[in-house]
Amino acid sequence: MNLKKLELKFLNEENRTVTLTLDEPVEPADPALINSVMDTILLENCFTTSGGDLVAKKEARIVERNVFDVEI
């Protein structure tokens, strides 16, 4: 089984990394759209964390994980 996730990483007011994860991202990834969505998240201030509001974009990445069942 192949699992992919889109991770949107931000910095909060305490300069700690906060990750928002989306399952099954559309590929190929559209960097301009991802950048725009991250800007909107910051502008709308729609998420808060124990370390305060999100204040800056850090990175975005697609993470892939392969899962192989083992018979027991």
Rank of each mutant, 00 (worst) to 15 (best):
M1K: 08
N2H: 06
N2E: 11
L3A: 10
L3Q: 11
L3R: 07
K5N: 09
L6D: 03
L8P: 05
F10V: 09
F10I: 03
R16C: 15
T17Y: 10
T17Q: 09
V18L: 08
V18D: 08
T19M: 12
T19E: 12
L20M: 12
L20G: 11
L20E: 12
T21L: 14
L22E: 11
E24R: 11
E24N: 14
E24H: 10
E24Q: 13
E27F: 03
A29T: 11
D30P: 10
P31W: 03
A32S: 09
A32I: 12
L33R: 00
L33A: 08
I34V: 10
I34A: 01
N35G: 02
S36G: 07
D39E: 14
T40F: 09
L43S: 10
E44L: 11
F47K: 01
T48N: 15
T48L: 08
T48F: 12
S50K: 08
S50L: 06
G51M: 01
G52R: 02
D53I: 01
L54F: 05
V55D: 06
A56Y: 00
A56L: 02
K57G: 05
K57H: 06
K57V: 01
K57F: 04
E59V: 04
R61L: 04
I62H: 00
I62V: 13
I62M: 04
V63M: 04
R65A: 12
N66G: 12
N66S: 15
D69G: 14
E71P: 02
I72S: 15
